[in-house]
């Protein structure tokens, strides 16, 4: 029983960061209508910002969250204005090739600047644990989970309770009607893409503490984020958190209870994509 409870805790704690990365991706897909393959590279930039600030000034990575979010919002906004906006009316394949190209370019720029090495920060709490009734809670995943809950709560609050947030949701539901009602869709797109990148950057900062900074750090999480948004339904922001929890729990249960389960973890994610897409096709037919 204790093993099961610990497994469930492991899964739920992992879900926080999955949801954070996936929410950013869901914003880009749902509001702007862009499948952003460079989302993982925005995460990577966040990780490097935290790492460089740590090495240069000794700043604890969690204290660089705000700066990373601002910088990444700027990166997202520039990317939108310079690259995404011109192809909004282009075929989807062109848009995907563009973001795929951006992903490769950003990874190679990072390789040129920092090399392929894995870099780690050093904080006093990376191995810290809270124990409760025989159950262990790792401090970094707990912090990341707590922060993810706060940030996603703020995001949903913004989307539900502010005029701008309602405008974002309106554009996500229908791209033409909000324009007829006086909502400036281009500004909404800019805001959504900037927020999407900022969320990725914040996740990157957390990854720098829990994992490492390297040019490829965002790749695995982007793959998981794609699985999550597919399961939630493309563009369905509200479905992201439950989907992240289900997938993270499935991952933890497979790792714990299936012999050799550690090697099946990624298969779980892609099985979910496969099942979700097939099920939707049958339902629509």
């Amino acid at each position: 029983m204790e093993l099961l409870l610990q497994t469930l805790i492991n899964g739920i704690l992992a879900a926080g960061i999955y949801a954070l990365v996936a929410s950013g991706l869901a914003l880009a897909v749902g509001v702007v209508g862009i499948v952003n393959f460079a989302h993982g590279e925005f995460t990577m930039i966040g990780a490097f910002i935290a790492y460089l600030l740590f090495v240069g000034t000794g700043l604890d990575p969690f204290l660089s969250l705000g700066l990373a979010a601002l910088v990444l919002f700027g990166v997202g906004a520039i990317t939108y204005l310079g690259l995404i906006r011109p192809v909004l009316a282009a075929p989807e394949l062109n848009q995907m090739l563009l973001t795929f190209g951006l992903s490769v370019a950003l990874q190679n720029i990072a390789l040129l600047l920092f090399g392929a090495d894995t870099r780690v920060v050093s904080t006093s709490y990376q191995g810290a644990t809270l124990s409760l009734g025989g159950l262990s809670f790792g401090v970094p995943p707990l912090l990341a989970f707590g922060l993810s809950v706060v940030i996603l709560g703020a995001l949903y609050g913004f989307l539900d309770r502010t005029r701008l947030g309602l405008a974002v949701r309106a554009v996500a539901q229908n791209r033409l009607a909000p324009g007829l009602l006086g909502i400036e869709t281009q500004r909404v797109y800019l805001l959504a893409f900037g927020l999407s990148a900022a969320l990725a950057g914040v996740a990157g900062v957390m990854l720098s503490v829990m994992l490492y900074a390297s040019p490829t750090v965002g790749f695995a999480y982007t793959l998981k984020a794609f699985a999550i948004i597919v399961m939630a339904g493309l563009g369905n922001l509200r479905g992201v958190v439950p989907a992240a929890i289900i997938l993270a729990l499935a991952e933890a249960l497979v790792s714990t209870y299936l012999p050799g389960g550690g090697g099946w973890v990624e298969a779980v994610f892609f099985l979910v994509i496969f099942v979700a897409l097939t099920w939707r096709s049958w339902r629509a037919a």
Partner: peptide, 13 residues
């Protein structure tokens, strides 16, 4: 036990 390198997920194993 096998694992996926780079996944960062070892708590379950």
């Amino acid at each position: 036990e096998p694992f996926k390198s780079g996944s960062g997920s070892f708590t379950a194993i």
